[in-house]
Structures are given as C-alpha cells and as structure tokens.
C-alpha cells in the first residue's frame, strides 16, 4: 500500500490546474477517484510526493505527463452511438441549418476525425439513414481519417465486439450487422458509405485537400493535445470548413480551451461551434 497522501490543498491546487487546462471540473465527490489516479502517476514517475509530481506536471514542456493524466481521468472508449445526443443534434438541428443555407446541389460533407476503429463514422451513417428525413434529397459524403493506418484497416473491416454494439437497438443491429465469429460485422453497404483516409491533421500539406466540409466530428482528441497543437488543429478545421459549417467536440471538451475562431451555437440537443457566416 502506498503511503503517498494528497492533502485537501493539494487536491484544490490540482483541481484548478486541471480545470484551466482541460475544462474538466472535479467536485469533492470525485476526490477518491482523482486521488487514486494521482497517486498512481506519482508512483509511476518516481516523484515521491504530490509536490514533486505537480512541478513535473506543470513545468514539463512536452506535456506528455498531462496527456497521460487526462487519459486516466477520462473514459476513452469508443462504441456505437457514444454521446448519442450529438447525433440527434446532427439530424435534428445541424443538418437542417446546413440545408437551409445551401445554395447549390453539392454534397454535404461530414468529416469524422479520428476515425479510430470506425464506430463514430458508421454511427453517423446509420443515424442519417434511420433518423434524417432528408437523406433521400441530398448526397452525403462521410470522410473519416486517422493518423494510424492499422486502426484504419480495422475500421474498414468493420468487425466489432458485442460490447461495442451494446447501445444499438436490436432493430438496427439486425438491419446493418451480421453476426460472425463471436462479433458483429457491419454490412457491405455501410462499409462502402464511409471513405477512410490516413492523415496527420497537424501536417498542413496533408490537410490541404480537405476542403468544403460542412460538419466536423472531432470528439475526445483535442483534449489530449497541448495548447499550441490545439490552436493549430482548430485552424486546420477552420480552413477545411465551409462558412456556416459546424464542429462537434466531445462532451468533456470545450472550445474555451482551444480557439476563438468559432462561434458558440446552442441547439436544443447540444452546444456546437460554428464557422462564422460573415467570415469571407
């Protein structure tokens, strides 16, 4: 058993720092959860005391330790229909706003980044087919990118564990998946519906060809970036988007820690961020 203790003032100090950096606020009811993870990192980094660890965390210019801590403090698990309220927002509010402002018949372009193993882009495709009444009236392009080629080929294969699909209604599961080798294989039509690409969003040359995007889903990625990289990523998104387009971040993320380029837009289902219309 560890003899490292986190005092009340240590906790308060950490809580303020973490809140400033990430926007995540822990109240006293999370004390045990936070302390346990802090002690784990203190031991792992041989810091001996909270103070020693906090100095490292705060002054380390690479930001690696903060990233590790964010990882421990957040649930970084991907599954179908995760944070479903945003998909509801997409079909009920975002897409109606986009189609209303549309002046030509170009396709609606949705960019999901990072693709990870594909749950998010496929969830978007399913949601559009099932719940967006205008799906027959518009062409939609879903592009999904990741930096990791291995995870992309996994996404393209589209084979998922029962756990990954447990949030899906039975009706949807039987309609779009086939039970195979103890898991669920997404149907060929949907696999063809999503275009998977490899891209490093921090490389300006690689993102040059991503343009005219209407909606970006970038959930639970930027929270792991340092301040400069977040700003740069926001610039990349801004340039990739059409004016009036929307960015959706993860539920514990906020543009308030990232960039001032976008306008806060409140819809009944969610807060999202819009590339200002007047910006041309």
């Amino acid at each position: 058993m560890s003899d490292i203790t986190i005092s009340e003032d240590d906790f308060a100090k950490f809580r303020e720092f973490f809140y400033r950096k990430t926007g995540i606020q822990f109240d006293n009811s999370k004390r045990y959860f936070v302390d346990k993870r802090l002690v784990e990192r203190i031991e792992e980094t041989d810091s001996k005391t909270f103070r020693g660890y906090f100095v490292k965390l705060r002054f380390e210019s690479s930001g690696d330790e903060l990233q590790k801590l964010v990882n421990l403090m957040t649930v970084n698990e991907t599954y179908f229909f995760r944070e479903e309220y945003q998909f509801k927002c997409l079909v009920n509010s975002i897409l109606p706003a986009i189609t209303k402002a549309k002046t030509d018949n170009s396709p609606i372009r949705i960019w999901s980044v990072p693709s990870s193993s594909g749950e998010e882009p496929y969830s978007i495709a399913i949601y559009l087919l099932e719940y967006w009444r205008d799906i027959e009236n518009y062409d939609v392009e879903i592009i999904s990118s990741d930096i990791d080629t291995q995870i992309i080929s996994q996404a393209q294969k589209g084979h998922y564990s029962p756990r990954s699909v447990q949030n899906l209604p039975d009706k949807i599961l039987t309609k779009y998946f086939n039970y195979k080798n103890g898991g669920y294989q997404i149907c060929e039509d949907l696999r063809q519906a999503v275009e998977f690409t490899r891209v490093n969003i921090m490389n300006p040359l690689e993102v040059r060809s991503y343009r005219n995007i209407d909606v970006i889903f970038c959930r639970n990625l930027l929270i792991y970036f340092d301040d400069i990289s977040r700003r740069q990523a926001a610039e990349v998104f801004f340039d990739a988007m059409k004016t009036g387009g929307f960015v959706c971040l993860g539920h514990s993320e906020s543009m308030s820690r990232i960039s001032s380029l976008f306008k806060v837009q409140k819809f009944p289902e969610a807060i999202v961020y819009q590339k200002p219309v007047e910006d041309r």
Partner: peptide, 14 residues
C-alpha cells in the same frame, strides 16, 4: 464559475 468568455457563454446558454 467560468474561466473565460467562451466557457461563460456556454454556461449562460445552458
């Protein structure tokens, strides 16, 4: 509490 105008606006709207 809010740490800047964007976070404040998000809270004020919800």
């Amino acid at each position: 509490e809010a740490i800047n105008g964007i976070e404040a606006l998000e809270k004020a709207l919800t």
